[in-house]
Simulated assay, not measured.
Amino acid sequence: MRLMTKVSLIAVAVFTLTACNKEAEQPKPLTLDTDAAKQSYSLGVSAGRFIDSTIKEHEKLGLPLASDVILRGIQDQLAGKAQLTEEEVQKVMVALEQTAREKQTELAKAQAEQNIAAGKAYLEQNAKKPGVTVTESGLQYEVVQAADGPKPKATDVVRVHYTGTLTDGTEFDSSKERGPAQFPLNQVIKGWTEGVQLMSVGSKFKFTIPSDLAYGERDMGTIPANSVLVFDVELLGIGEEAEQPKAEEATK
């Protein structure tokens, strides 16, 4: 999280001078007819966006910040009338940043626990659907389109088309627009390594992968920690390549 300690004082000052005039009922007309004016205004807008996002981030953590007090602090500093010493300001900001980190950790832990419970419930329901097979590891798969082609080994390089979604249907990756993905099968998540070995070239499978066979407790950006992942996979081919492309991000 970016905190106020990381804000450029110049940017904040410009924001205050260009966007904050609390005594005036309406702002004066502004003409942006020079590079300096546009640069100054852009710097102010950037600082304003940062302040707004910082306030919203802290609100999510249960740490409300008052925009009017923030701007008053800027004005007082510019006027040389700050009501806290530099040492006091630094002490408060360090404490705020520490509290924010602790809150983030608490929220992340709570969300991870919710994901575990939700994932377990989803897997239990999905396992009851007709056509779904559950392996010893807990991997669930459904044969969407059968084929009689060869099956890969874990040490093979495979070429696939795939789409990956969360259990709520949110798509986080797909090869459909980029073109087929190619990678060594033993260099991807466990659920892929196990599941694709069950496929014949030309077949299409749907895999529902428990979090411990995917990314586990790791938060992968658009993929929250402890997430069950759903992949629609088509195995296009098997073959060793002189130069093997890196594994796709969604399956590392």
Rank of each mutant, 00 (worst) to 15 (best):
S174K: 10
V132W: 12
L229G: 12
Q125G: 09
R2G: 05
P180F: 01
P184H: 03
F207Y: 14
A110T: 15
A127L: 01
I70N: 05
L96V: 11
T155N: 14
F231M: 09
E97R: 11
L198E: 04
K176N: 12
S211W: 14
T99L: 14
A47L: 02
D156Q: 04
A225G: 07
G48H: 10
L17M: 14
A146W: 00
A47V: 06
I10H: 07
T193C: 03
T16G: 12
I55A: 03
E23Y: 13
A250C: 09
Q90R: 13
A47Y: 06
T170R: 04
T251F: 11
E25C: 05
A19C: 12
V143S: 00
V196N: 04
A110I: 14
E23C: 08
Q145R: 12
V14S: 06
L235F: 02
I74C: 12
K128W: 08
A82Q: 06
V160R: 01
E136I: 09
A11G: 08
L78E: 00
Q125V: 08
K151A: 10
T155V: 12
F231H: 13
V230N: 04
A154D: 07
A146F: 04
Q244I: 15
A82F: 03
E248H: 13
T167Y: 04
Q39C: 06
E113C: 10
A146T: 12
P64Q: 05
G237S: 03
V92D: 14
Q90K: 14
T222G: 13
N21P: 04
A37K: 13
G138M: 01
V158C: 04
L213T: 04
Q140T: 01
T18H: 14
F183S: 06
S137K: 11
K60Q: 14
A66V: 10
V94C: 01
G221S: 12
L9G: 11
P180I: 06
V228S: 06
E87W: 00
E194L: 07
M220Y: 08
I10R: 09
E194G: 03
D168W: 05
L139Y: 09
M199R: 03
P64M: 07
D148V: 08
K120W: 05
L61H: 02
A118D: 11
T170G: 01
P224W: 09
C20K: 08
G80F: 08
K252Y: 12
N126Q: 14
E57P: 02
D156R: 00
L84M: 13
S8L: 06
E57I: 07
T193H: 09
K60Y: 09
E57H: 15
N115M: 15
P27L: 08
N21V: 04
V233H: 02
V92G: 01
S227E: 03
Y215C: 07
E102Y: 05
L229N: 10
A24C: 03
G138C: 02
L9Y: 01
